[in-house]
Amino acid sequence: MCWGLVGMTDDVVLVVSELMTNAVRHARPSCAPPERPGNCRLTLERPGPGTVWVSVADSSGRRLVRREPADGAESGRGLAVVDELAARWLVRPSRTGKTVWAELLADA
């Protein structure tokens, strides 16, 4: 990464992938037609040395549901992955949908 956090690259990429996948797959507003997928926005920030914030805002007010996938299931592990890799994460509702935010820290 251009921020000098090379050791975090894989974790950041995986968290971005999981949060964006959730937004693209599940964040369409319930009143929207199927051909209109909704909007999402990815933001990466480096608030200090060894810290990366990932946030994905989407246009759906639907709550996140963390599932325990069945053995052999091909999906359903995204939030468990985020929970494992992030120091902390949260969901903030907004007037246009929600934002899922995760903080990743470099190994001390």
Rank of each mutant, 00 (worst) to 15 (best):
W3I: 05
V6A: 13
T9G: 11
D10M: 10
L14I: 12
E18N: 09
E18Y: 09
E18S: 07
V24C: 01
V24P: 00
R25E: 08
R25W: 04
H26M: 14
H26R: 12
S30M: 05
C31M: 15
P33A: 11
P34M: 11
P34L: 12
E35M: 09
N39M: 05
T43R: 15
T43H: 10
L44G: 05
L44Q: 10
E45H: 06
E45M: 08
P49V: 07
P49G: 12
G50I: 04
G50Y: 04
W53E: 13
V54D: 00
V56Y: 00
D58G: 02
D58M: 01
D58L: 02
D58I: 01
D58R: 00
S59N: 03
S59T: 05
S60M: 00
R63N: 11
V65P: 01
E68K: 07
G72N: 15
G76I: 13
L79C: 09
V81L: 14
V81C: 13
D83N: 10
D83M: 05
A86N: 00
A86T: 01
A87E: 15
W89E: 04
L90H: 08
L90I: 06
V91F: 03
R92N: 09
R92L: 14
K98R: 15
V100S: 03
W101Q: 10
A102S: 03
A102G: 04
E103H: 02
L104F: 13
L105N: 02
A106S: 14
A106E: 12
